[in-house]
């Protein structure tokens, strides 16, 4: 069966067949949720942001141009949604302080404690990075975007993306090292 491409579906949404957005939602909402979760370290905020992204797609559907790759357009909206959220909530709890507060549903087995501590440390280290550096790491490491796609999304050269990724990983390593109490791994 021929699977409709993202671009084709989005063009249909743009032209008034808004039901087709449901297919794009099913394809991308989990991926977007994880993108926001790694940026904010907060589950309920990430869910709200996913909702906001799809509302914005409906609102701005007429601005979609077929020549744009859908995924790039989607991430552009996602980044704007996140920046608007940061502006709106800048006085609230700072990023990186919330992983510890996630309630444990069940008692944690001892072997998992260390892994959970590692997750908290890495999330905190990520949160310490400036937004742009955090974004490139997430886009490249978790969202599997290619250099070319990241460059298009950020509006810069591929070489700039490579250099940014290099600096970001270096800075992440330094932050992680500090959070581990200076114990090299």
């Amino acid at each position: 069966m021929n699977k409709a491409t993202d671009n084709n579906l989005m063009e249909q949404v743009r032209d008034g067949n808004v039901e087709k957005l449901a297919i794009l939602f099913e394809r991308y909402h989990v991926m977007l949720y994880n993108f926001f979760l790694r940026l904010t370290s907060n589950r309920s905020i990430s869910e709200d942001l996913v909702q906001d992204v799809f509302i914005r797609i409906l609102k701005y559907r007429s601005t979609y141009r077929g020549q744009d790759k859908f995924i790039i357009w989607l991430y552009r909206i996602a980044r704007n949604t996140h920046v608007d959220y940061l502006r709106k909530r800048k006085d609230e709890l700072s990023l990186g302080e919330q992983w510890d507060e996630v309630p444990c549903q069940e008692p944690t087995p001892p072997e998992k404690v260390e892994q959970e501590q590692e997750i908290v440390r890495l999330s905190k280290a990520l949160a310490k990075l400036p937004l742009k550096k955090r974004e490139v790491i997430i886009l490249c490491r978790f969202q599997n975007l290619k250099y070319k796609e990241i460059a298009e999304l950020l509006g810069c050269q591929i070489g700039t993306v490579k250099a940014l990724i290099h600096r970001s990983i270096k800075e992440l390593g330094k932050a992680y090292f500090e959070l581990s109490g200076g114990i090299a791994s």
Binding site: V30, Y33, R43, V50, Q115, I119, F142
Partner: peptide
């Protein structure tokens, strides 16, 4: 190690 999660 950072897990991929499912939203509610």
């Amino acid at each position: 190690v950072l897990p991929e999660e499912q939203p509610s």
